[in-house]
Amino acid sequence: MEVLRYVAFSTDPKGGNPAGVVLDATGAADTAMLATAAEVGYSETAFAVPSGDGALVVRYFSPLAEVPFCGHATIATAVAHAERHGTGRLRLRTAAGPVTVTTDRAADGTLVATLVSVAPRTAPIEEADLAELLAVLSWSAGELDPALPPRAAFAGAWHPVIAAASRDRLADLDYDMAALGALMAHRDWTTVNLVWRESPTVFHARNPFPPGGVVEDPATGAAAAAFGGYLRELGLVSPPATLTIHQGADMGRPSTITVTVPAEPDTGIGVTGTAVQL
């Protein structure tokens, strides 16, 4: 397999979130894909297999396990495909369901990709799980933003949304990786989406990712899509809305994710970003 390496959600190779991309993984066994993802060492590598009807079957592997959906690797895959086959609309078949992604060139020539997630949904977080999660993070209930209540959010993968009341709280991330990984495995959470609201449409996020063997993800498109659905379902944004999520700055890899929240309920969330080859 030819493995390409891209950074998604940044035009600077020193920013964004690196992803491995295999545009043709035809015939590759699960063990081979997992071993390749481990060798690449990024939070996820996407493996695409062209199908007879023009769609791509895409699977995503972290260095430790397969995940149902990954936003930044999807953006990277779409840009890599567009560089070789031209811009346009791709239909993806993922373990989470069908995802469309469209590529186009900005005025400055930069390739930009927009994915539309599966239908999002939210669920309560059990009180005991929330208490354990906050304890592992060394956060207190008094440090949370009461305007953004804790929920588990889904748009292809599950992410608990925990909102900090201050930027300083978000900036101070120091957690027990083994303990958080065990809790997340028990609840089938992919990353923890820690957020702070700067303004009605601008947010900052950090995403611990111990199930993937990664302390922190610098740009998490799947969590951004889930967060857009969370805001719409809880009436915390007035759709249609365009949101900006800044992520990765605290770990020295600044990323920018644009989230489009349609007004129609139960419709997919748009996630837009750039990608550059390493």
Results as ranks from 00 to 15, higher is better:
residue 41 G to H: 06
residue 42 Y to D: 11
residue 43 S to P: 15
residue 43 S to W: 02
residue 45 T to Y: 07
residue 46 A to P: 03
residue 46 A to W: 01
residue 47 F to N: 11
residue 47 F to Y: 13
residue 48 A to N: 03
residue 49 V to A: 09
residue 49 V to P: 12
residue 50 P to Q: 11
residue 50 P to M: 11
residue 51 S to A: 14
residue 51 S to P: 04
residue 51 S to W: 03
residue 51 S to T: 13
residue 51 S to V: 07
residue 51 S to R: 13
residue 51 S to Q: 14
residue 52 G to D: 15
residue 52 G to T: 12
residue 53 D to A: 11
residue 53 D to T: 14
residue 53 D to N: 15
residue 54 G to W: 09
residue 54 G to N: 13
residue 54 G to Y: 09
residue 55 A to I: 05
residue 55 A to T: 15
residue 56 L to V: 09
residue 57 V to F: 05
residue 57 V to P: 05
residue 58 V to N: 01
residue 58 V to G: 02
residue 59 R to F: 00
residue 60 Y to H: 10
residue 60 Y to Q: 06
residue 60 Y to G: 03
residue 61 F to D: 13
residue 61 F to I: 13
residue 61 F to N: 11
residue 62 S to I: 07
residue 62 S to A: 15
residue 63 P to I: 08
residue 63 P to G: 08
residue 64 L to K: 14
residue 65 A to C: 14
residue 66 E to V: 06
residue 68 P to C: 09
residue 70 C to R: 10
residue 70 C to M: 11
residue 70 C to D: 10
residue 70 C to V: 09
residue 71 G to Y: 11
residue 72 H to Q: 03
residue 73 A to V: 07
residue 74 T to W: 01
residue 74 T to M: 02
residue 74 T to H: 03
residue 75 I to P: 03
residue 75 I to D: 03
residue 75 I to E: 04
residue 76 A to V: 09
residue 76 A to M: 06
residue 77 T to S: 09
residue 77 T to L: 14
residue 78 A to P: 07
residue 79 V to S: 07
residue 79 V to T: 12
residue 79 V to F: 08
residue 80 A to I: 13
residue 80 A to R: 10
residue 81 H to F: 08
residue 81 H to E: 11
residue 81 H to D: 07
residue 82 A to T: 03
residue 82 A to W: 01
residue 82 A to D: 02
residue 82 A to V: 05
residue 83 E to Q: 12
residue 83 E to Y: 00
residue 83 E to S: 03
residue 83 E to I: 10
residue 83 E to M: 09
residue 83 E to H: 05
residue 84 R to F: 08
residue 84 R to L: 15
residue 85 H to K: 14
residue 85 H to V: 10
residue 85 H to D: 10
residue 87 T to E: 14
residue 87 T to C: 11
residue 87 T to G: 06
residue 87 T to F: 00
residue 87 T to Q: 10
residue 88 G to M: 06
residue 88 G to Q: 05
residue 90 L to G: 06
residue 90 L to F: 05
residue 90 L to E: 07
residue 91 R to T: 15
residue 93 R to W: 00
residue 94 T to K: 00
residue 96 A to S: 14
residue 97 G to D: 06
residue 97 G to C: 10
residue 98 P to C: 10
residue 99 V to R: 07
residue 99 V to I: 15
residue 99 V to F: 08
residue 100 T to N: 08
residue 101 V to W: 06
residue 101 V to E: 08
residue 102 T to F: 04
residue 103 T to A: 00
residue 104 D to M: 12
residue 105 R to G: 07
residue 105 R to P: 09
residue 105 R to A: 13
residue 105 R to C: 10
residue 106 A to H: 09
residue 108 D to S: 01
residue 109 G to W: 10
residue 109 G to N: 11
residue 109 G to D: 14
residue 111 L to K: 01
residue 111 L to R: 02
residue 111 L to D: 01
residue 111 L to F: 04
residue 111 L to G: 03
residue 111 L to S: 02
residue 112 V to Q: 02
residue 113 A to S: 01
residue 113 A to R: 01
residue 113 A to D: 00
residue 114 T to C: 03
residue 115 L to C: 00
residue 116 V to C: 13
residue 116 V to S: 14
residue 116 V to T: 15
residue 117 S to C: 04
residue 118 V to N: 00
residue 118 V to Q: 03
residue 120 P to T: 00
residue 120 P to C: 00
residue 121 R to V: 06
residue 122 T to V: 15
